[in-house]
């Protein structure tokens, strides 16, 4: 383990990959807490299945690579709640970067979490930050309306939409429509893209904060330069107005919460008391306090 960490710090990709697996299998080991942050910017991409998240991430990688940035990608696809298996197919859209040593792509199953992310993602981000990527792009599972956990791990959230997937009523709904810092209408060469955009604009204009809407065609790269420009502008703004710091604090709290929840679940499994609810709760608390 120590050996892997040393090698990883010296830029060894294989060690980085092995450490990610180690983290996924040993969430209790807190060695990542000692790693220094190198200031990687974490950009989350979310949206419904088939909106073009992977293709857009692919295009954003190309744009960032033109400027010489090192890019790490975490691509998450659903883990089956029935078998535990997963088909991880996001990578297939990112083929053009397979041979680029400055691009690291890692696929992950969503695990048992319901928020659209894998629980170990907090630690994997820390690890990739310590490795020295300039940008870490996270692609969530194809999200429905309420998988919003991406806000807890990203500096900025890009919400990927596509034309023909709803009207103002959908835009007014709580949950995923609230979490975008930047809205992307991908597949904007399809009919109805302009109408879709105007509907989205009219709803977003009801909020106090102006949020950018960008039309892209991920497969041709159209609009992607503009998207990367907006991402950078917003990062800059958030850095200045303290939003990045606020989000980092939120991330740490959420991470602590996920570790605590796991401890509670574990403690609960070891107790057989089922007759008295308050007794059960007290036993769980006692147990956790004892084991620290």
């Amino acid at each position: 383990m120590k050996d892997l960490l040393e090698k990883m710090k010296n830029g060894d990709i294989k060690s980085l990959a092995k450490l990610i697996s180690y983290l996924e299998n040993n969430p209790e080991d807190r060695f990542v807490d000692e790693l220094p942050s190198k200031g990687a910017k974490v950009i989350g991409f979310t949206g419904s299945p088939g909106a073009g998240k992977s293709s857009l991430v692919n295009a954003v990688i190309s744009e960032l690579r033109k400027e010489g940035f090192k890019v790490g990608v975490i691509a998450i696809d659903p883990t089956s709640p029935f078998t535990g298996g997963a088909f991880l197919g996001d990578r297939i859209r990112m083929k053009s970067h397979f041979l680029d040593d400055s691009v690291f792509i890692r696929s992950m199953g969503s695990g048992s979490s319901l928020g659209g992310l894998n629980e170990s993602i907090f630690d994997v981000i820390k690890l990739m930050d310590a490795f020295g990527f300039d940008y870490i792009l996270i692609e969530t599972v194809g999200a429905g309306q309420s998988e919003v956990d991406i806000v807890y791990v990203s500096d900025i959230v890009v919400l990927v939409l596509s034309p023909g997937t709803g009207d103002e009523i959908q835009f007014l709904k709580s949950g995923i429509m609230e979490i975008g810092d930047i809205y992307v209408i991908n597949k904007s060469d399809l009919e109805g893209a302009d109408y879709y955009k105007s509907r989205l604009e009219s709803i977003l204009s009801l909020s106090d904060i102006r949020k950018p809407i960008i039309k892209t065609v991920a497969t041709t790269g159209k609009g992607v330069k503009e998207l990367v420009f907006e991402i950078k502008q917003l990062l800059d703004k958030f850095q200045k107005n303290g939003e990045i710091k606020k989000r980092l604090e939120r991330r740490i709290k959420k991470h602590a919460e996920s570790i605590l929840v796991r401890k509670i679940q574990k403690s609960m499994e070891e107790i057989n008391e089922t007759e008295n609810l308050s007794k059960l709760i007290n036993m769980v608390i006692d147990n956790i306090c004892k084991n620290k």
Binding site: I13, T79, G85, L88, I92, L99, G109
Partner: peptide, 25 residues
């Protein structure tokens, strides 16, 4: 069968397969 399957699609070169295998561990 409960496994995590990373699928990379058509027309992969041996170089691409090796890099993917390393990154995905």
């Amino acid at each position: 069968a409960g496994m995590e399957v990373i699928y990379t699609g058509l027309r992969q070169t041996p170089e691409q397969i090796v890099k993917t295998a390393i990154q995905e561990d």
